[in-house]
Every structure is written in structure tokens, then in C-alpha cells.
Design a protein around this nucleic acid. Structure first.
Length: 882
RNA sequence: GCGGGCGUGGCGGAACUGGUAGACGCAGCGGACUCAAAAUCCGCCGUCCUCACGGAUAUGUCGGUUCGAGUCCGACCGCCCGCACCA
């Protein structure tokens, strides 16, 4: 294995193009990244969010894989049994679009893309266990997903209900919210209708409280993500209150309407009650009132987009009904239908307190309803307090509120709750405490072809029946056509029409498929099995989970991560796994951005079509015409500001790309890809190669005996070497790759100085320095191995080591070399640095003080006076207060 | 509107729990080597004053706590991100 590649000094360049494929082949042949479940070493599970196989990757996609790879390789060297898998999030809409637009079958489009992207990923030299590769579109993967669905069904975690969707009447398809633009379908341009369909839901809300509480335990997640999840779950504590209709002002069918409020303290400020347009009472009233019916229709026309909602005016319709105030039977309050009241939150009805809620205030001003303030801000004169255009939602004490006057908001809430719990309407309490969540159950039905089939057969007699497990998987039929709008599965009669498993009568398969978020909610469990064709292996899952470090984009902060957290809990409830939290550590990496270039005709140009002339200046390579350079943006095919990994590999080698991606910018921030940057990385790679060459030439070589004593130069180098090992270990553990890179650079400078010193010695290199030079190279190479693995292998072999550095242990450090015998203390006078002093590390504060007072600079500053105070912070600093 | 984060040289950024601000890299400038260039190596590189020694000043702005503040507290300015009729 060991080859003679001793670089000749100065003349020999490291040839990445030749070396990189060679080492990748060696790794693959030896299968060193294949992980065994029965390995006795402690486990470490690191994974990056798996990619959607969209076609080809650009270098921007590589960043998170490289970061995960550095950690995986480092942990292996630290003696862990590392699981570092890869797979494909392979179902989804783009494959169907390709089928519609280009006539390519989604399956072949997807698998072709997977093949191309797998090759590109392998080019990056990632230490992945490809034997556990999965593709979510493969029946071997989704068969288990169908079993899981049936388990959920059996355990009451999956159910069917009517739900509204965005329906495109031209394409005959359901649209996601983001596919609705200005109320029209993004492809057809048809006005989108809201249609009710019977769909499958997963009961994530059963776990709302647990999902919320457990966020507190995720101490290795970014605070930002934890906060986003808390907000998304959106717990609120409130009260459901029955408002009885006033005599002669109620509907016939019911005595009272139930509203939900988190501010029962403001009840005395109630000016109106408002119902959702979808409220059953509204529907009943609209049936008899054409005017109300028209108003409801108008409300439904509004778009669902954020902008549409934001700009939408508050509108109401006075039903003419009146309710009695729950705490003051002498008062009545009008009942409106209002466009801003949501049916699927709380009870679909609210009471409005205009003085303390901006939305209610806007509504009240429009319909000339009374605005009575009931919460008085601290230190405010009750006579002078007015609410005009801005509602007051701050702290204060109650007033204008009868028996609540003088209470704090919290006390008043409690008092009202107790009161209304005692009051009765008929035989039920008028008020009931209620916790509500913003989180809704997860609708997973998609009216699409390219997704996991829902294993259900609909029978007119038996209803929806689960496909018997021995008949799984329900495979997607290949023979479908995309020449007509709508879901091809609806027309695949040979596949669709089957007998009912229960009664045998003619029935039909469910033609909806699952949301692709289902596919990604459990794939990290699938990797745990070393045979992915069998059902989830509970023991393997228990062994590997939770994932120790998960790395991916911030765009998945809410849905994917919340769904995954739900899935582990739901599977646990079904007895399938024993883990609750899937990801112990989460890291969200930044994107790679690149300048964009446009020629004079406004056409986007690829970076390789452009010659850079200076900051912000460039010309077209082909004809020398000026090019407009715009600030860096996320790499995207449409703007052509992409760099292909193959091109980088060919010119500089992938180690350069890896090194550059890890350099300079903190990994959680966006990083700019530049020509100067990749060239800097190239210089560094060559520099390491040269330094190793110098160490081979000047050093003691492998197996040399360690000298008894070391001179100043050798000792200095040894301290630097051992310090490097310790520093970079910590940097990688903390995922601070940019700092790790800086530490390696710093060491390279020290190494270079020691080499120069060795060369300058007339009588040859002394044994102590020769030993230190070899040791320095033997430490530097494993330290850079996680980051530039190919270069490291080449150096490792050149240094005369037999095995692979990828399998070598992380270098051991000598504790004595990590601490200095003396320390340099900065000396401050009145907080300003005036001098330095070198003292023994163990010096007592009294000794330091004496030495400091003897300093000429201190004497000069004191000018004969005694110092007021001397602060000695051991091993840090001394401050003399004059 | 609500919530969160961030402001450090020409640029990316470093600075452990309050203890030498600007590590390291990029760009720039000067030098060595070379017929010349590339590569490489050495030196300089926040701002202002000074030939220099040295000094002053400096982490968005203003104030506070402290022997000492980039770091802690308060107010303000600017930028970025998330959520958004959730009662």
C-alpha cells in the first residue's frame, strides 16, 4: 500500500486530479465507511438532510454534506462507530411536471437524476455508508410507510375528514397554498375554487402539549428553531364562554353561542360577538337570508395568501341577533358575522373588546360600536384615559368592570373564570377553561401520482378498508398517462378497481397519495437497519437513535422537524420504536452565495463565461463586452450563478472546494463563493504538501526514538503541534470549522518557521528538531484529514505510514506540552495596557504584584505615589489603579 | 403588528464564563529570488499625531454598572430573519 511518493522539495506539486480518484477507489474497495450494527464501539449518528433529486447539484449543495463529513471522519478517528448515511427524498411534484412538460416518466426522470447526483456526491469524497442508501420512491422504502399508515389507522392516529382544498378547475388538480397566486392557479391561471374533499389526517394535535414541553429538552438545537416551533404549536390558555341569546333576539334552534377568549378579564368591555362565516349558526341564518348568504360568499372569495389576508378589510354583517352579557344581565350585545373570524380555531366565535384589541377596535370604529376601556395602564388617571386609534394591550388594573375593579389582569381572569364556572346555562357551566393550540392536524392526502399510495380500499358497503398487510406494498402503477389533466391514478382503472378485502364486492383503491413530508418524517429510522428491505428493526433504532448531529437548512425549522418529532412519538404509541426525540443535536447551515453576471443584452452569464477585472468589474470572455456584476445571491440555475463540482474538482481538486467551504465564514451564515477564495484554498493545499515534504526530508522519519530533551525551537514546534491537535478537536466538536481552519493556518506558519530554522542550521538538523519536525507532520496530517481527506491520505502514505489516515486514531497530546511554564501578563494602568510581564505560571499574586511594582513603566506612571489598588487576575491580567 | 437575531479594519471574520480588540484568511503595499514572469519566501497593513520612541483614539449612537466593557444593563439608529386576522 505504501507508495513512494516522497515529494521532491519545491518542484513537486500535489496532483489532486490524479490522487483524489485513486483514494476514493481505495476507500470504496476496502469498504471502510460501511457501518456494522454489531460494532462494540460507542455509536455516533451524523446525518445531513437528504436531497431532492432535482437533476444536478452545484457546489452550493455540497456545504452541509461536507460539514457532516468532517464531523463523521473526526468522530471515526476518535474511536466512534459512526453512522453517516445518505438517501433521496424522491417523491414530489417536479417529477410530474417533467412528465407533463417533457413526456418523461416520473420514475425514469427521478432515477436518472439520482444516478447523476450520486456520482456528484461521491466526487466530493464523502465518507458515506452507501449500503444503506434509500430512495423514498422505491417500493422497498414505501412498503414500510404503508405499514406505518395502517398502524396509525389501527391506533386512531390516522382518520378521514372533510377538508377544504384549493381546486384548479382547469387542471383538475388540488393546489398547495404557494401554488395559488392572486387567487389563480400558477399553471393554468384559472380562478381557484375552494372545494371540500374527504381527506386523510394524522393526529399530531394529540401530541401538541408533549411536543411543546419537550422543546425544553432540546438543548443542542438552535434557540431560533425552538422558538419557531413553540410559536407554531401556539398554545393559549383561555375560557369558553356561553353567551345566551336575549329574549326575542335569538334563533329558534339554540339558546346560546359559545365563544373562546384568552382575555376573560376584558369581558365588561365587550361590544359585540362575531361568528365565523363558516359557523353552523351562520350557515343556518344564511339559509334564510339572501343578504347574509351573499356576504358569506364574498368572504370566501378572498385569497388565502398572507398578503391577501393582511390587506383585507375587516368586514361584518349584523345578524340582528343579540346576546345577554354573561356578567351583567341588564346589557345586551349585538351578534355579527365577521370575515376575520376563523372557524377552525377555538369555537369559531369571539366576543370583541375594542379598547384592548386592535382588530376589534378597527371593527368597532367601522360599525360605530362603543369602545369602553376596562384596563387602566399603571399610573394613569381613569378620567383622562382614552382609546382612540390604538388599542391598549399592556399591563394594568381593571376599571369600568363592576366587581373586577382594581384587580390585576391575571386576578381578573381567574375571578371571571371561577364565576362563570359556577353559573349555569341549562345544565352546563357557562364558562369552561380551555387550552387551545394553533397547531392543526396534519392533512396528508395529495391528489397526485408521484407519491406513496395510501393503502386503503374504498367499498360502498364496508367504507374505507385497510389493504391487508400481506398484500403490501401497494405499488404505484407504471402504466399511466399524463396527457390529460388531473391525477392519473384516478384513470388507472386496472390498478384502481379491486375487490373489497372484507366483503369481496367491487371496490376501488384510494387514489390520493401521501404528502412527501411523510416520506421524510421517518427516513432517519430506516437508516438504522442494516437490511433496509425488512420492517423497521426496533433494536437497531434503539441502538442508533437519537441522531447525534443532524445538519440541514433553516427552511425546515418547522414542518419537517416537527413532523419528525411527531412521527417518533406516534410510532412509539404504536409500539414500533422506543425513542421520542429523533434529533439530539441540530445544526442549520447557511447557504453558499455567488455574484451574478449579466451581459449587455440582459442575459445571465455563468461565472466561467466572465473575466473578472476588479471589484464589481468584469467583461465577457467571448467578445470583451462589459458585464454587469450584481451582489451575491443564493446559487440558482435560473440566474446561472452556479459552480459545478466537477469543474472545481478538475481544476483545483475537491479538497480545495471542501477547505474553502469550511474557511472564513461561520457555518451557520451564508458564505460567498469567489475565485480568490478557491485559489487561496489551493495555495493552502499545496503548502501542506510542501511542509510535509520538508518534514520528510529534514525530519527523523518514522519510528525515530524520542530525544530526552528539546531545545527552544524544537520545544516551540512541539507545543504548537500538540496545541493544534487540541484546538482543532474542540473546533470540530463545536462545529466552528472556520476557526479550525484558522488554527491550521496558524500552525502552518509556525511549522514553516521551524522548517526555515532547521534549514539555516549549518551543522545539520539536530535530533530533537528532527524528531519535532516528523511529529509535526504526523500531527498536522490527521488533523486536516477530516477536512481534506485525499490530501491527507497522500501525505500519510508519503510519511511512511502503512494504514489509511481515515482509519488512524486522532493524535494523542501530551498534557505537559499544552500548558506553558510561564505566562505573559498584560499590565494595565487605570485600565489601559501599558506593559507586559513574563512570570512563572505558578507565581502567586503577591509575587506578581511585587514584580509589577518594580517595572519602570509602572514607577513612571505612579510618579512616587502609592497605588490605590492592584488587581491581579492569575494567568490573565494585572490592573494597577493609580 | 408580534417575536427573534445581528451591527468589530477595504472584505470574510476571531476574541474562552467581563480581562492585551482586530487571531487567521482575502485584497493591497514594499522587498528577496528571477534575464523576466509565475510560484515561493520575508516585511508592512484600523484611524490620527510623531523622523522615531511613543501617544491619542477606536467594536452602529448615547448613557450606565465595573479596577477593567466588543462582551453586562437601559435608550436610540440601522440591517436581517420568522410568524401573521389564532380571539
Amino acid at each position: 500500500m505504501t507508495q513512494d511518493r516522497t515529494p521532491e522539495r519545491g518542484s513537486d506539486r500535489y496532483n489532486a486530479r490524479e490522487a483524489e480518484p485513486r483514494w476514493q477507489k481505495t476507500w470504496a474497495e476496502r469498504g471502510i465507511f460501511r457501518t456494522r450494527n454489531d460494532d462494540p464501539r460507542p455509536k455516533f449518528y451524523v446525518m445531513e438532510m437528504f436531497p431532492y433529486p432535482s437533476g444536478r447539484i452545484h457546489i452550493g449543495h455540497g456545504r452541509n454534506y461536507v460539514m457532516g463529513d468532517v464531523l463523521a471522519r473526526y468522530k471515526r478517528m476518535q474511536g466512534f462507530n459512526v453512522l453517516h448515511p445518505m438517501g433521496w427524498d424522491a417523491f414530489g411534484l417536479p417529477a410530474e411536471n417533467a412528465a407533463i412538460e417533457r413526456g418523461i416518466h416520473p420514475k425514469s426522470w427521478t432515477y436518472d437524476n439520482i444516478a447523476a447526483m450520486r456520482e456528484q456526491l461521491q466526487l466530493l469524497g464523502l465518507s458515506l455508508d452507501w449500503s444503506r442508501e434509500i430512495a423514498t420512491c422505491d417500493p422497498s422504502y414505501y412498503v414500510e410507510q404503508q405499514r406505518i399508515f395502517l398502524d396509525f389507522l389501527d391506533n386512531g392516529l390516522a382518520y378521514r375528514k372533510e377538508s377544504e382544498v384549493n381546486w384548479d378547475p382547469v387542471d383538475h388538480t388540488v393546489l398547495a397554498n404557494e401554488q395559488v397566486i392572486d387567487g389563480r392557479g400558477w399553471r393554468s391561471g384559472a380562478i381557484v375554487e375552494r372545494r371540500k374533499l374527504s381527506q386523510w389526517f394524522l393526529r399530531i394535535t394529540d401530541f401538541a402539549q408533549e411536543l411543546l414541553d419537550a422543546i425544553d429538552t432540546l438543548d443542542r438545537w438552535p434557540e431560533k428553531v425552538r422558538l419557531m416551533q413553540r410559536n407554531w404549536i401556539g398554545r393559549s390558555e383561555g375560557l369558553e364562554v356561553l353567551f345566551e341569546f336575549a329574549k326575542g333576539f335569538g334563533p329558534e334552534a339554540q339558546k346560546a353561542v359559545k365563544v373562546y377568549t384568552t382575555r376573560p378579564d376584558t369581558l365588561f368591555g365587550a361590544a359585540f360577538v362575531a361568528l365565523s362565516p363558516d359557523h353552523p349558526l351562520t350557515q343556518a341564518l344564511a339559509a334564510k337570508s339572501p343578504a347574509l348568504s351573499a356576504f358569506v360568499a364574498e368572504c370566501k372569495r378572498g385569497g388565502t395568501s398572507a398578503e391577501a389576508i393582511e390587506t383585507q378589510e375587516k368586514k361584518g354583517f349584523d345578524t340582528g341577533l343579540k346576546v345577554v352579557h354573561p356578567l351583567d344581565s341588564s346589557r345586551t350585545v349585538p351578534v355579527y358575522v365577521a370575515n376575520f373570524v376563523l372557524m377552525d380555531y377555538g369555537t369559531g366565535a369571539i366576543f370583541g373588546c375594542p379598547a384592548h384589541d386592535q382588530r376589534d377596535l378597527d371593527f368597532a370604529r367601522k360599525y360605530h360600536l362603543p369602545v369602553v376601556p376596562v384596563v387602566l395602564p399603571p399610573d394613569t388617571d381613569p378620567g383622562a384615559f382614552r382609546v382612540e386609534e390604538i388599542a391598549y394591550d399592556g399591563e394594568g388594573t381593571l376599571f369600568n368592570s363592576g366587581f373586577l375593579d382594581g384587580l390585576t389582569i391575571d386576578k381578573a381572569k381567574e375571578t371571571v373564570a371561577r364565576q362563570l364556572e359556577r353559573f349555569r346555562v341549562g345544565d352546563v357551566p357557562q364558562g369552561v377553561r380551555k387550552v387551545n393550540f394553533r397547531l392543526r392536524d396534519w392533512g396528508i392526502s395529495r391528489q397526485r401520482y408521484w407519491g406513496c399510495p395510501i393503502p386503503i380500499i374504498h367499498c360502498d358497503a364496508c367504507g374505507p378498508v385497510g389493504v391487508p398487510r400481506e398484500q403490501l406494498p401497494v405499488r404505484l402503477p407504471d402504466d399511466v398517462s399524463f396527457d390529460k389533466p388531473g391525477n392519473p391514478l384516478d384513470r388507472a382503472t386496472a390498478w384502481r378497481d379491486v375487490p373489497c378485502p372484507k366483503c369481496g364486492k367491487p371496490a376501488r383503491r384510494e387514489t390520493d397519495t401521501m404528502d412527501t413530508f411523510v416520506d421524510s418524517s421517518w427516513y432517519y429510522l430506516r437508516y438504522a437497519s442494516d437490511n433496509v428491505d425488512r420492517p423497521l428493526d426496533k433494536a437497531a433504532v434503539a441502538h442508533w437513535l437519537p441522531v447525534d448531529q443532524y445538519i440541514g437548512g433553516i427552511e425546515h425549522a418547522i414542518l419537517h422537524l416537527l413532523y419528525s418529532r411527531f412521527f417518533t412519538r406516534a410510532l412509539k404509541a404504536c409500539g414500533r420504536v422506543d425513542v421520542s426525540e429523533p434529533f439530539a443535536g441540530l445544526f442549520t447551515q447557511g447557504m453558499i452565495v455567488h455574484e451574478t453576471y449579466k451581459d449587455q443584452d440582459g442575459k445571465w452569464l455563468y461565472p466561467e463565461e466572465v473575466k473578472l477585472l476588479g471589484p464589481g468589474k468584469a467583461e465577457k470572455l467571448s467578445d470583451g463586452t462589459p458585464v454587469t456584476v450584481s451582489p451575491p445571491e443564493k446559487m440558482s440555475k435560473s440566474k446561472r450563478n452556479v459552480v459545478a463540482p466537477e469543474v472545481v474538482a478538475d481544476t483545483y481538486g475537491v479538497d480545495c472546494a471542501r477547505w474553502f467551504m469550511l474557511s472564513d465564514t461561520p457555518p451557520e451564515r451564508d458564505s460567498e463563493w469567489t475565485q480568490a477564495g478557491i485559489e487561496g484554498a489551493w495555495r493552502f493545499v499545496q503548502r501542506v504538501w510542501r511542509l510535509v515534504g520538508e518534514a520528510i526530508e529534514l525530519g527523523a522519519g518514522p519510528g525515530a526514538a524520542k530525544p530526552e530533551t528539546f531545545g527552544a525551537v524544537a520545544l516551540g514546534l512541539r507545543r504548537a503541534s500538540h496545541g493544534l491537535v487540541a484546538a482543532v478537536a474542540e473546533d470540530i466538536e463545536r462545529l466552528r470549522f472556520n476557526v479550525g481552519v484558522a488554527h491550521v493556518h496558524e500552525f502552518a506558519n509556525a511549522f514553516g518557521s521551524a522548517v526555515a530554522a532547521a534549514r539555516a542550521m549549518k551543522d545539520g538538523v539536530p535530533a530533537d528538531l528532527a524528531y519535532a519536525l516528523t511529529e509535526a507532520a504526523d500531527m498536522l496530517v490527521p488533523v486536516v484529514a477530516p477536512m481534506t481527506p485525499h490530501l491527507a491520505e497522500e501525505c500519510w502514505a508519503a510519511l511512511g505510514h502503512d494504514g489509511l489516515v481515515a482509519e488512524a486514531p486522532w493524535p494523542a497530546t501530551e498534557p505537559d506540552l499544552l500548558k506553558q511554564d510561564t505566562v505573559t501578563l498584560p499590565i494595565q494602568i487605570n485600565g489601559k495596557k501599558r506593559d507586559d510581564i513574563v512570570v512563572p505560571r505558578a507565581a502567586t499574586p503577591a509575587e506578581v504584584e511585587a514584580a509589577v511594582l518594580a517595572l519602570e513603566s509602572v514607577q513612571r506612571a505612579l510618579d512616587g505615589r502609592a497605588p490605590k489598588r492592584i488587581i491581579v487576575v492569575p494567568q490573565r491580567i494585572v490592573n494597577v489603579v493609580a
